[in-house]
Design a protein around this nucleic acid. Structure first.
Lengths: 76, 76
DNA sequence: GTGTATTTGTTCGTATGTATC
DNA sequence: CGATACATACGAACAAATACA
């Protein structure tokens, strides 16, 4: 769960949760991660925050976003 | 209420009021205390004074301040 | 993608009372 | 007596990050 008391920005927390889920295999290579709207609901954040979280994963090279399709876990 | 006539500095009075509210459970662990601007309004003091009050609570170890987020009651 | 609101961080200036030199 | 220093308190303004709509 995200922690409002943490000094870590919410979008970083969401990104870290997703990264952990990817690393553990909870989301397989090539599979889509939850949509922005799903991330909103699951973590109780705004869409802007969800978007930033995904953008962070893209920066880290963990996922690739395909316009009008979704965001997918990169193959190792 | 804060008393401008008291020899106790206003920022100490505000800090003591907040400390009492925390101790009594009026503000739970992990919950945010009022923002500086709210403390201004509630106690009729300047923001500088509100800031000093919060800083005092941080010194006492009662709360932690997260930049651009807020100030939260430390877990016991 | 944009715009707005909120919150803390920071820096000025001014005024007052107290204490010190 | 005058001059200085310090702490308190207020006011205003702006910056930056976060979050939401």
């Amino acid at each position: 769960m995200v922690d409002p008391m943490s000094p870590t920005p919410l979008y970083v927390q969401v990104a870290d949760l997703l990264a952990a889920e990817i690393k553990s295999g909870g989301i397989a290579s090539g599979a889509a991660i939850p949509s922005e709207s799903r991330l909103q609901q699951e973590h109780g954040v705004s869409r802007g925050t969800a978007r930033r979280a995904v953008a962070l994963l893209v920066e880290r090279g963990l996922v690739v976003t395909v316009p009008q399709r979704g965001t997918y876990v990169k193959p190792a």
